[in-house]
Write a protein that binds this DNA or RNA. Sequence first.
DNA 1: CATGAATGAGTATTCATTCAT
DNA 2: AATGAATGAATACTCATTCAT
Lengths: 192, 192, 192, 192
Amino acid sequence: MSDTKDRLLQTAARLFHEQGYHATGVATILREAGVNSGSLYHHFAGKEALLRGVLDWYLDQLRPVITGPVEAAESDPLERIFVLLGNYRAMLESTGCVLGCPIGNLALEVSADHPAVRPLIDANFAQWRAVVASWIDQARDRLLDDVDAEALALFVLTTMEGAIMLARARGTLEPFDVAVANLRRHVELLTA
Amino acid sequence: MSDTKDRLLQTAARLFHEQGYHATGVATILREAGVNSGSLYHHFAGKEALLRGVLDWYLDQLRPVITGPVEAAESDPLERIFVLLGNYRAMLESTGCVLGCPIGNLALEVSADHPAVRPLIDANFAQWRAVVASWIDQARDRLLDDVDAEALALFVLTTMEGAIMLARARGTLEPFDVAVANLRRHVELLTA
Amino acid sequence: MSDTKDRLLQTAARLFHEQGYHATGVATILREAGVNSGSLYHHFAGKEALLRGVLDWYLDQLRPVITGPVEAAESDPLERIFVLLGNYRAMLESTGCVLGCPIGNLALEVSADHPAVRPLIDANFAQWRAVVASWIDQARDRLLDDVDAEALALFVLTTMEGAIMLARARGTLEPFDVAVANLRRHVELLTA
Amino acid sequence: MSDTKDRLLQTAARLFHEQGYHATGVATILREAGVNSGSLYHHFAGKEALLRGVLDWYLDQLRPVITGPVEAAESDPLERIFVLLGNYRAMLESTGCVLGCPIGNLALEVSADHPAVRPLIDANFAQWRAVVASWIDQARDRLLDDVDAEALALFVLTTMEGAIMLARARGTLEPFDVAVANLRRHVELLTA
DNA sequence: CATGAATGAGTATTCATTCAT
DNA sequence: AATGAATGAATACTCATTCAT
C-alpha cells in the first residue's frame, strides 16, 4: 500500500472517530494527511469509499491490535471479556469520555443512508462478536448448559456499545462501570 | 407555543432522527416545515438551539408518550421493561431497522463537539433510567437482596441502545431479539 | 420627541460611529435601544432615514455641544481652533484612536451611494466650517490681509479630518499631533 | 500570479473603492470577476484576506503607478506635490467627485474592526508620505531651516485626504481646490 | 502518481423590511 | 404607538468532486 493511501486511511480513521463522518470534511482530511485532493480521488472513488477503506482497515486490525493482545495478556477466557472492556474503558478515560468505539460511532450515523457501508460495519461487529464467542466457548464447561456462546457474546457487545454511549453522554465513566458491573454479575450467575 | 415553532420542532425532531444532526440541512427542515429561514432564527438562536429544543421536547414527551402508556398497559413492574423494549422493537420493525432511539442516535454524533447539548441528552437518558428504576424498585421483594434498582435500570438502557445499534448495522431484528433475550434471562436469574 | 425615537437616534448614532453604517445591522440598533422592529418603522422610513435623523441631530448638537463650550472656555478666537481640535484629540485618546469624527466616518462610506444623505453630511461640515470661519473673522486684524476666513476654516477642517484618518490608521496620536502642529505653524505664519 | 487571482484582486480593488468594503458583497466581486465562489477561497482565506491582498497590491503599485509618473513629468521637487494632488483632482473630476483615494475610503471603514488590515493601510500611507518627504528633502535649501520634511509630508497627506472627503460630501471640486490653495500658500510661506 | 486550480451547489446565518394584532 | 412573528433575498463561506498539467 502506498504511503499516501496509508496516510489518508489513518487520518480519516482518526477524524471520523473524533468528529463523526458527516462532521469531517474532505478538506480537513487532506490537510491533516498532507495530501492533495487529486491524490485522494486517485486512491478512492470518494469520501464514502474512503470510509469503506477505513472500515476494511479496522477489520484487519481487530485481531492483531484489539483482541490478540487481550489473549496474550489474559489466559482465563471469561476474564478476557473484562480485560477487553477495560481497554475500551482506558480509551474513554484517557480522552475525557470523548472517544469510544469507532465502529459504534459510525454505525448510528451512517447505517441509514449509506447502504454500501452498512455491511462493513456489521462485519466488524460480527468478527468482534465471534472472537468473544470463541472465548465463551472455551469456558463452556464452567457455564450453565443452556448458555449460547454467540448470544452471550452479542450481549457483551451490546453492553459495551450502550455503556460507551452513556459514558459519552454523561461525560463520566460511571455509566460504563455500572454497566460492566451488571455484566460481570450476569456472567457470575451463569457460572453458578 | 406558536404554530411555527411547533412545526419546526416536530420537523427537526423527525429529520434528526431519520438522518442525524449533521446530515440534516437547515434548508431541508425549513422546506419540510413550510417555514421561512428568517423565522427559524426568530424562534431559535441557530441549528444547535433547535436541537436543544428538540431534546427538551423529547424530555417532556418521555413520560406521557413513552413510559406512561406502558404503565397503563402492563401492571407487572418487571414485565413493563419488556413491554417498553417491545415498543422500540416495533419502531425498528416498522421502519426496516432504520429508526431506533432518537436520543441514542444523537448521543454519539453530538456529544463530543456540542457541549451545550450533552446535558440534555444525559437528562433524557437519566429520566428514562429513573422510570425503569422505579419499576424495578416496585418489584424489589421479588429480586435478590443485593439488586440495585438504579444500576439494573442502567443495564436495561445500555442493552436497549446497544441492541438498536446492532440491529441497525445488521439490518435485521435478530441482534435486538438476542440482546433482549439475554436481558430477560438476567432478570430471571435475579428473581430466582 | 418620543422617548423611543430618541433612544433609536442615540443608539444608532453611537453604533454608526463605532462600526460604520453598513457594518451596523438594524437588529443591533433595535436590541441595544430596547425597541421593537415595528417601532423603528413607525418613526423612520427605514435604515437610511434613521441615518438622516442622526445627521439632523448632529447638526442640532453642533453649536450647543461641540463649538459652544469651546467659545465659553476660550476667548482668543484663533486659540479656539486649537481647543476644538484638542477636544477631538481627547476623543481619539480616550478610545484608543478608534473614534474620531462621526461625520467624517460617514462621509466616505455613504456619500457615493446614498444621494439623499450627502446633503446632510455636507450641511454638518458647512456649519462646522462656518463657526470656525466666524472665529477667524474675529481675528482678521491679526491676520495677513489676503487671508480668506472661509477658505482657512475649510483648511482647518480638512486638516482635522485627515489627521483623524491617519491617527486611526496608525493607531497612535502622532499623526494627529503632527498635523495640528503644521496647522499651528501655518496660522503663525499668517499672523506674522 | 494566476489569472484568476489577479482578476479577483483587480475587481475587488475597484469595487471596494467604488462602494466600500462592507457594501461590496463577495457575490458581486465573483460575478464581475467571472470567478466561482470556490476559487476565491482557494486563493484567499476570505473576504478580509482579499482586502489585504488589495492593499498589498496598492503598496506595490504606489511608486510605479502613482508617484513615479509624477517624478518623470515634473522635475521641481516642490511642484511635484501639486502635480500629485492634481492627479487625485483629475480622478475626482472624471468620476463626479465619487472616487477619491482608495486607501482613505478604507481607512475609516475598516481600521476599527479589522485589526489585521490596519497595518497595511498604515503602510500605504507611510510609503506615500515617505515619497513626498523625499521630494521635500530635495528642496530643503529653499525651505526655512526648521521645516521637517516628514512632518510636512504628513501635512500634505492629511490635506489631501481631508480635501477628498469634503469634495465627496459636497459633490463638487471646490473644497478640494480651496484646501490645495491653502496648502500652496503654506508652502510658499515656508519658502519665503 | 502528484499537483493544485477550478467547479458550482450547498452550508448556516443575517439582512432590512412588512404586517397583523 | 407598540408588539413580535413573518418574509425571503442576501450574506460569507464550505462542500465533495473534477480535471488539465
